[in-house]
Computed example of a mutant assay.
Amino acid sequence: MSKSENKRPLISLLNPKSPVTEAYRSIRTNIDFSSLDNKVQVIMSTSATPGEGKSTTISNLAVVYAQSDKKVVLIDADLRKPTMHHTFKLSNRHGLSSLLTRQVDLANAVQDTAVSNLSVITSGPIPPNPSEMVASGRMSALIEELRDQFDIVLIDTPPMLAVTDAQIIATKSDGVVLVLDSGRVKKDMALKVQEQLNQVNAKILGVVLNNVKKKNGSGYYYYEYS
């Protein structure tokens, strides 16, 4: 297995009985009950900075949603440092950037995965203008089209404090899952991310905390939902 393939293992697929997988199921349940009055169908993940686990979180969340008999599509909208084609071992010849520039149609951009009920739209070739592409009317139209075809639409986005892409995509989503590394992100950084999301009236569905130390000091929780 190559280094890139081993970077983000799908533990929810490899070890469905593990405590970490159960944590992902808990996130799924919390999202489902987070807004009983308004349907939450398009969900994006982001973080404050790179390397906090947002892509790992959204990938495993996609798996547990698919395992609950939901028809799921996962979009790699991190058009700067995409990872989903590595995680799911898919071709990245065509993808989101190809769709937005009308080089391919939706049917040719959506790829099936080894997980039943789960499809992926990879990033496609990295474009010179990612922010403008995700802000386009074509991106909005694509998301609306996917709403009609899938039960759940999940979107992986770049870190909030790095570029504006995530803030833009938040305006097109029903809710945001914010992934933070408890040992890395300072309070002021987390508050800045919250402020940026509030500026576009984004709904924060919850915060996933990575590397949360157990009270007895014997180890670390991988994920905590709040």
Results as ranks from 00 to 15, higher is better:
Y24N: 06
Y24I: 01
S26G: 10
S26P: 00
S26R: 13
S26I: 14
F33I: 12
L36M: 15
L36F: 11
D37N: 13
K39Y: 08
K39N: 14
Q41Y: 08
V42H: 02
V42Q: 10
V42R: 12
M44I: 13
S45Y: 01
T46F: 03
A48F: 03
A48E: 07
A48Y: 07
P50M: 11
P50N: 11
E52L: 10
E52N: 10
T56N: 08
I58F: 02
I58Y: 00
I58C: 04
I58Q: 07
S59G: 02
L61R: 08
A62N: 08
V63F: 03
V64L: 08
V64G: 05
V64Y: 03
A66G: 07
A66I: 01
Q67G: 03
S68V: 09
V72I: 05
V72P: 00
V72N: 00
D76M: 05
D76Q: 07
D76Y: 01
A77N: 03
D78R: 06
D78K: 00
L79S: 11
K81C: 05
K81W: 02
M84S: 13
T87G: 05
K89D: 15
L90R: 05
N92E: 12
H94F: 15
H94E: 14
G95K: 05
S97E: 12
S98M: 09
L100P: 07
T101M: 11
T101I: 01
D105F: 04
A107E: 15
A107D: 15
A107N: 15
N108M: 12
